[in-house]
Design a binder for these strands. Structure first.
Lengths: 209, 209
DNA sequence: TAGATTGTTAATCGATTAACAATC
DNA sequence: TAGATTGTTAATCGATTAACAATC
């Protein structure tokens, strides 16, 4: 593994490599060249070789890449083999869908707690996890030390919850709210999912292209 | 408006400008300089001025930008004032959450139809829209000519549905499935939302940084 | 061995940042 | 007018593509 810092562009392509290699593996293929992979993925062969060589030489001259080995290596680079604990805050439509829909285990996480401030929801089970009251968040975090928090709450609630969670040692956020965590906490790892921004981008393309 | 093509990086920043300007407007401010906006958003003032000048001179030397005017202009650039029609396919947890959670009108879209292949769901109402059978998709599209389809279906169902919709004249997709629409239809506008990829990116950062 | 394909360096392209003249 | 701040050009930085020697 190289000691150079990996660019964001490369990191964002890794999950897609991982997915495509998984499909190729499932289809029974065992090896692939950068050129063939590039055609299937709509990239250049050069870019694929550059990307992979950020992490080491996984290929073999004259042969290409072993699909199973390469996928497994990318999985390790992504940290999928080291489960990180996560809690989810806000069990509205979105929080519920995220809880039900995502296969956390295969993405490097283990979901260990669900929280909502509406007392009426407390005790309800989703996917074998009980919804807990946010009033018990402090206690739960001190006992279980979650690495990551998934925020499915409105922007106006997000600032206070983020302060609380950062104070409790949470160091990564999967942020579905519109609150900008990085501005206040530049050291914390944040991955934003902004549906609205994504949809407006599509609106732009339809309107202008 | 310039005739040069606008880079993807710029387009992706527009919704964030739009949001921030909306908040500033709501807070009662009327003008802002590129420097102050850059500090609030965590960008450089240079980048903001470059970005805005792709579309025209919205500012005034010695004064800065009028917040309300600038937000409104960016809204027009994004096409938020020209509603496009959209249908949503797949009313599982995710489709339901997207239907309930997103304010389509403020993002440039009007949601006009919901479809699912499970007959048990047909007729159920969500947000004043009935769930329709996918067997009526052809008829509905020929009558209503939707611009956009929102795919909340599994990968294995997505290929056939996409073929059908492209055949019916749908020219833009908001794609929550893992099916890669652009590879087969490079001319169609696609905005992908891949939760899994997003979460794996976060896993990478936690593991490696 | 000969052919294929990687790993890696060099060239190109594009995006961001800096600088400053124009001007409100 | 003087100060402030844009619009825009030039310089820098980073990412992608091309090329090819190394090697399986």
């Amino acid at each position: 593994m190289s000691n150079r810092t990996i660019s964001n562009s490369v990191i964002r392509r890794l999950p897609r490599y991982y997915r495509f290699l998984g499909e190729l593996k499932a289809s029974g293929m065992t090896r692939i060249s950068s050129r063939e992979l590039s055609e299937r993925m709509g990239l250049t062969a050069s870019q694929i070789r550059q990307d992979l060589n950020c992490f080491g030489g996984f290929g073999q001259q004259g042969y290409g890449y072993n699909i199973e080995l390469l996928q497994s290596e990318i999985g390790k680079i992504l940290g999928l083999d080291r489960p990180k604990t996560a809690i989810l805050i806000g069990i509205g439509n979105l929080g519920r869908a995220v809880t039900m829909h995502i296969n956390f285990e295969s993405k490097g996480f283990r979901l260990i707690g669900l929280f909502d401030s509406k007392e009426a929801l407390v005790g309800q089970m989703i996917r074998n996890l009980p919804i807990r009251s946010t009033s018990t968040l402090d206690e739960f975090c001190r006992e279980n030390l979650p690495d990551t928090a998934i925020l499915c709450i409105p922007k106006k609630a997000a600032a206070a919850v983020t302060d609380q969670l950062v104070g409790l040692g949470v160091k990564a956020f999967w942020n579905f709210s519109h609150y900008d965590i990085s501005l206040k906490y530049p050291g914390v790892k944040v991955e934003n999912v902004h549906f609205g921004d994504s949809l407006m981008t599509l609106s732009y393309r339809i309107t202008n292209e």
